[in-house]
Design a binder for these strands. Structure first.
Lengths: 350, 350
DNA sequence: GTAAACTTTGCAAACGTTTGCATAAAAATT
DNA sequence: AATTTTTATGCAAACGTTTGCAAAGTTTAC
């Protein structure tokens, strides 16, 4: 019993055709007659033929595969982006290899190398918090393989970038708090090695300045935006008077943690302190009081990423496209955590 | 300027060695002297050599890649599973291709074929809600490629299965409601084509029976467990008297929706109706009142999946392992939505 | 000093495709 | 009827590795 899996050679022999004809027939090459195509396809089905993508990729240098590297696929924003990218790519016949760096630089390097080794035709990346050396991507630039950075993007690396308007996000979030009456606003950001947080910080500063509020170094904090770190910062911030009257947390996990801390500590939100988060994680809508957050339109971003990759893959003179920046607008979603109205019966969103 | 990327042939020429020696040197084959290995590796670095996984995979029939198919990577449970699988596989030098079927049977078939075409060395699958024909997996069985189903698993397809104890989950959730005083418990499940829901339903029925509560057909509902469908069911259930005093929702999105509906409609949870969800989605802990849910230990499951794949890959006589079932225990996590105590000051979990 | 054993390297085929070029056959043009 | 054009097919090399086998070189054993 021949357990060996069938190849186009088997089809060719069975039909007394050459392998080249079979190959072309299966790929719907225009030079092959309809009759032959039918015969070949029928025989392929009969023999249970399965194409070997490795062989095809090796020979043609086209793997029909895209690589995606994100910090963590279980976080809301990257998860949403990944979902949509995958679906869009599937529509155009590309496979996606999703990888997560776990915010480890070493893992990112390893993954990028592995993806190159797999000869992906394009790469989309949101870097770790600590990636400042981008030389592991050089090979992609050298070989002219489409390379798109999104969300967390390099600061000084000439490449295609698609990112949210983090400056505006920071600005609007802060100004919103000011509009609602805050005068003493804490900023909690991730490490400044990461593009996102420098931008959001700039926006924060600009809003303060516009409204003639002094920037105080003691009111800004930087650390990985985990629950544990957020709690520590809460201890510092609320451990001594005067309490701030507003907190701008640059991710939603942090915003949620602060809200819970305040609830526990008997600090009323939004009456005593108002909170704004970032990313519009579904949890912000569910918690009580619901949390104002900055929506980054992940689906728009994902669509743009796929579009950019496809453009670059099809481009004849690719170099031209490579160094542009696309900025996706953001939108502040106002909820109860920053409300200035009298508290009224809470209403769930329809 | 030679832009062509370097191969082991280039290294061999440079060093006046044969390609076979170079290949073996790079793979740390024991027959190669340490001295040669060093020379080869140094030269590889110098030339900027990058291995071609397609070529290696083609020749050796070992792609060092695993495929994963889940319904949707942005949902809590599959996202968590994917994250851990990816990390575990990375540790042992395997790549992972994550795919989502979007609960479409056609897409599942297409993805499975693509993964076979990519010659993955193993496949882990959680099926769509509607997969009842599993013939697209036959090729993996025929070719003896490790195949592991998890969570949503086939009912009549002889294969390795790792799943949560959904029967017990259904039983404990229901019994818990009964213990808390419920006598009229609504069950909301997904389509019965999916293994999960038949099991959970059996558990529900068993708990009713044990406590001598009659099973009423009018109190069970089946539909895709989306927010929209949950709202419709709410209309039916709460649109007429008598209201049930308990609801067992077999996923957390549904549980959350019901809670919000009740809040809106002025039905007090848990006083008038108690709610239990399924999966222990982080949102259940955050919402007020927090929702009792069944934890499925996704990390344990993910670890078992990877372990099973690795065992199967290394197995000499693979057939033996193939048809076993592993059942991961579940745990009911009690929260406020099913509490029978007097309402007291709400306390956030530490 | 010769045989046996071991270590290290090389030869060449193989993996399953794709593709440039040549060619045969058929159709269209003169 | 001869020539050109078009259509359909085949030949053979190539993609970059891995690997069974042979062989050369070195060490060990008697």
């Amino acid at each position: 019993m021949s357990n060996r899996s069938k190849t186009i050679v088997d089809i060719a022999e069975e039909l007394k055709l050459s392998v080249s004809t079979v190959s072309r027939a299966l790929n719907d090459h225009p030079n092959i007659s309809v009759k032959t195509k039918d015969r070949v396809k029928k025989m392929a089905r009969k023999l249970g033929y399965r194409p070997n993508a490795l062989a095809a990729g090796l020979r043609s240098n086209k793997s029909r595969t895209i690589g995606l590297v994100v910090p963590k696929i279980s976080m809301f924003f990257p998860a949403t982006i990944s979902t949509i990218i995958q679906n869009k790519l599937h529509e155009v016949g590309y496979n996606l290899i999703i990888c997560q760096s776990n915010d480890s630089y070493e893992q990112e390097v390893a993954l990028v190398n592995a993806l190159y080794s797999a000869r992906v035709e394009g790469l989309a990346v949101s870097t770790t918090l600590y990636t400042t050396d981008f030389s592991h991507f050089d090979i992609f630039k050298q070989q002219n393989i489409p390379l798109v950075f999104f969300d967390r993007v390099p600061k000084d690396y000439n490449v295609k970038v698609i990112r949210g308007n983090d400056y505006m996000g920071g600005f609007e979030a802060t100004e919103h708090l000011i509009d609602k009456g805050c005068k003493d606003i804490v900023f909690i950001g991730g490490p400044l090695t990461c593009s996102l947080y420098t931008e959001r910080l700039s926006g924060y500063k600009a809003a303060l300045q516009k409204h003639k509020i002094a920037f105080k170094k003691s009111r800004v904090f930087f650390h990985e935006l985990t629950r544990e770190n957020a709690l520590q910062t809460c201890e510092k911030v609320f451990g001594q008077e005067p309490h701030p009257d507003g907190v701008f947390a640059t991710n939603d996990t942090t915003a949620i943690t602060i809200l819970q801390y305040c609830r526990e500590a008997g600090i009323k939100v939004p009456e005593q302190v108002k909170i704004v988060g970032y990313s519009n994680d579904p949890r912000t809508e569910i918690i009580t009081p619901s949390i104002t957050s900055v929506d980054q339109y992940p689906s728009t971003m994902a669509e743009r990423i796929v579009a950019a990759l496809m453009e670059l893959i099809q481009a004849k003179h690719p170099a031209a496209y490579r160094h542009s920046q696309e900025i996706i607008p953001i939108q502040l979603v106002e909820r109860d955590s920053s409300s200035s109205e009298q508290k009224k019966t809470r209403s769930t969103k329809k």
